[in-house]
Nucleic acid binder design. Structure first.
Lengths: 360, 360
DNA sequence: GTGAAAGCGCTAACAC
DNA sequence: GTGTTAGCGCTTTCAC
């Protein structure tokens, strides 16, 4: 099959038109200094006139790099992943890299292989891996012996693997400490899907804080959700059945917290008088929930940007003789945002009536 | 600078190892039938053993195609764009295309030029353009004389330009009709940023329905938001000042509708007794708002998928001799989802007390 | 400071 | 059914 409409301008046409060699055009395009200013200007004029765009394939073929980063992610309809992706895109753009996007819906080995194969075929210079970790999800890392650098976002840190994470255990600890300081003792949790590392970390933070405060931790205080609002709603109902004396609940993301708030309303439970609620993520809507939601804010664009910086450093290092940039694991710190869903002394709370408060 | 760690397996190594020509390997990799089954199998074995991955650059250089689609979008932290992107990714994946993602934060001409230049350099086979349309945003279409196919998502339809849209005017008309049927007559609107085509369309749908029902339409019934929850909250306050007799409000997306609901609560207005509210988008949270939000659902993954189908057809057409696939404009239909924020007879409404209802 | 030649990995065209 | 040859657009190397 013959290709059509080849109106693409090549370096040769520019060279011919400008009366120089292709080499000189190449030097101009790559800002190599050894070109007479007048020659350079003349070439640039021709380039603009003809609308010449260097073919990245040809360059890539020769240089063995693509100036493209592979991004493997999932759940971009959720706040966290999409926000992170924005950070990734901005920083890559800034550093002159393009993005090749793959969504990994089912983290099964065959899918992983397919995605990786596609990225390698496309000669990406490095990979950003930011999708949930199911079981031995990372085994390909050992198996495939990747020849290009990879940075993981929000994955469990492992020796010899570059990753950037948010210290969500610390974030949860702040949130829990805040509840304890406000006099809450019987605190439940709605977790995310425990196949996600971030969900396990948040659960762990909850456990730790309670243990440190010498409070009992029982399984009936724990319910697993799936990040969705609906699962939060269902989760709270379950929790109230198993753990009726609960005074406060930590919900592992804000969308589920919305479901929890909704269920409280249905059940006639006042927040925070009957039940204090703390979420996680600080989605833009959280301050408009009723009552406004106490939550933990993560700087996700920074997360994405930092990962890109790490990755590009690793890529550059491979081009030096002494390639010894091995960044390890970077931790970012989240921040507790206190609103009225967790503060008992309630000038802010709804003044309208309701069932009498049932605090013990 | 010399490239390092060239452990990439090439077609020549495979050919040598298998004792065939590179051509035969190529034929195997491309599933061209004229190869003896045993030869094919033998080659495949070697391919697997060596872990050979065809270099897409080399192929692209030869064939002048990249099997990559450029996606230009913005606002992926919002539900609509991110959801659409999911649809785009799935369908591209299915059809064997990769995605090169660009986020266009500021739709200024120079940014547009930069993004387009980058995509062209990268030899994308086609472009999906799904970002807000500011003024003469599309002028590049005429200026640059793009040599590759482009499909627009949610842009104003123009002759000779391929696009796929959701008929939001129709969606809004359904929503408005529903309000009218429920006896509401004085209906305000919070629009999206009017630089977005979708926002203008929704406004137009609102106008049309009121006009058709012989109701007055004044400027004081209209407030412009920016899609954010905060702008919805502010918008309602403005609207109530300018248009205090308002009985219902159409809010151009669900996030702003959340802000509107929140403001109602602050002001002690019951929904829908004092004010009926209809949103747009049907984000997953909408049914968990209080009261659950009546809204208009769009099939955004279908939107994305359809656009990819159109684009790939256009791409294929360019490779036929009789290249005459010009798809024009496809319209998808939205669907009204009725919940309790707009239905007066309220078995569903909050049974707890509150300020007395103030219906006229 | 500039040009000529070679070749990156692959596939189209044609030979056998 | 399989091999040979040429060349895609660019950059690297080495002349001059």
């Amino acid at each position: 099959m013959s290709r059509r409409s080849d109106n693409q301008v090549t370096i040769r046409q520019v060279a011919k038109e400008a009366g120089v060699s292709t080499q000189t055009v190449s030097r101009v395009m790559n800002n190599i200094p050894e070109v007479l200013p007048e020659t350079r200007q003349h070439v640039l004029d021709v380039v603009n006139r003809l609308g010449y765009r260097p073919n990245v394939f040809a360059r890539g073929l020769k240089q063995n790099r693509s100036y493209t980063l592979g991004v493997v992610t999932s759940g971009i309809e959720y706040y966290g992943p999409s926000r992170t992706l924005v950070g990734v895109e901005q920083k890559s753009n800034e550093l002159g890299y393009s993005l090749s996007l793959s969504l990994l819906h089912q983290p099964e080995p065959e899918n992983i292989q397919r995605v990786l194969g596609s990225l390698i075929s496309r000669q990406v210079d490095g990979i950003l891996w930011t999708t949930q970790e199911i079981g031995a999800n990372l085994s390909w890392l050992n198996g495939e012996k990747l020849s290009i650098p990879v940075v993981f976002l929000e994955a469990s840190p492992r020796p010899g693997v570059a990753s950037v994470n948010i210290d969500s255990r610390m974030g949860v600890r702040q949130a829990m400490q805040h509840l304890l300081e406000n006099g809450y003792r019987r605190i439940g949790i709605v977790t995310g899907p425990l196949s996600w590392w971030a969900a396990r970390e948040r659960l762990q933070g909850w456990r730790e804080t309670l243990a440190d405060a010498d409070l009992v931790v029982e399984e009936r205080q724990i319910v697993e959700g799936d990040w969705s609002t609906g699962s939060g709603a269902r989760g709270l109902k379950q929790l109230l059945e198993m753990y009726p004396e609960m005074e406060a609940v930590f919900v592992s993301n804000d969308q589920m917290a919305l479901g929890v708030l909704q269920t409280c309303r249905q059940l006639g439970r006042q927040v925070p008088e009957d039940l204090a609620i703390v979420g996680y993520d600080d989605i833009p809507e959280a301050e408009y929930f009723w009552p406004p939601l106490t939550t933990v804010r993560q700087n996700l664009t920074e997360l994405g940007g930092t990962a890109v910086e790490m990755l590009t450093k690793m890529i550059s290092a491979r081009w030096q003789i002494d390639a010894t940039y091995s960044p390890g694991c970077v931790w970012l710190e989240p921040e507790l945002i206190i609103r009225s869903s967790s503060v008992r002394s309630s000038a802010t709370s709804n003044s309208r009536g309701g069932e009498p408060t049932q605090n013990p």
